[in-house]
Amino acid sequence: MPVESDAELRDVLGQETIAVVGCSATPGKDAHEIPEYLREHGYEVVPVNPYADEIFGREPYDSLTEVEEEIDVVDVFRPSEEVSGIVDQVLERDDVDIVWLQLGIRDDEAGERVEESGRRFVQDHCMKVEHGRLMD
């Protein structure tokens, strides 16, 4: 079952390093503003976007497989139909504990695969909204 309870969400939000797949270099877009909010609240944000040259003053990675840092959470800002492939990349890593799909993004089958691997899965929730509601 995907993470739903406030206690579980608080625990997930207690992590430190978040790789943001689909992180945008464009201010005003949710995929830029939400990771910026997370950075402002002390999270280490690792941008993943093969089409951007720089996000938050650093070069983004092209894919999760290239990320060198240890990742706690993968936050997904990509269409639902891309989630399965992103989960494939997550499952190749040993460090990722949680996959979080932003508001409006769902993939039950991919979520089952995440959970079967012993990791936690959040879908169709905004990380900024939940952080503001539960952590501030």
Rank of each mutant, 00 (worst) to 15 (best):
E59S: 07
D6Q: 12
D72K: 06
R120L: 10
R93Y: 05
R106E: 11
I18T: 10
C126Y: 14
E116I: 04
H125F: 15
K128M: 15
L64T: 04
E81I: 11
E40S: 11
D97G: 13
R133Q: 02
R113Y: 06
C23V: 06
V21W: 08
Q123W: 05
S5G: 11
R10P: 00
V21L: 09
V12T: 12
K29V: 11
R10G: 01
Q89T: 08
V3M: 10
V83Y: 05
R58N: 13
R119P: 10
D72Q: 05
S84R: 14
E69D: 13
P47I: 06
F121T: 01
Q123Y: 12
R120H: 10
D107M: 04
W100H: 06
P27H: 10
T65E: 15
V90N: 02
Y37T: 00
D6N: 15
G42S: 05
I105A: 02
E66G: 11
R78N: 04
V21I: 09
C23E: 03
H125K: 15
E16D: 12
R133D: 00
L38I: 04
W100C: 02
Y37S: 00
Y51E: 14
P50G: 10
V21Q: 07
D72R: 01
T65Q: 14
C23I: 04
D88W: 12
V96S: 04
S63Q: 05
S5H: 11
G118R: 03
H131Q: 09
G57C: 03
S63I: 07
V76D: 00
V48N: 02
E70Q: 07
D124L: 09
H32I: 05
E109W: 08
V3H: 14
G28Y: 11
E36W: 06
Q102L: 01
E82Q: 11
E54H: 06
T65N: 15
T17K: 14
E66V: 07
E40I: 05
G57L: 08
S117G: 06
E54V: 03
L38F: 04
E68A: 13
A52Y: 12
Y37W: 00
L64H: 03
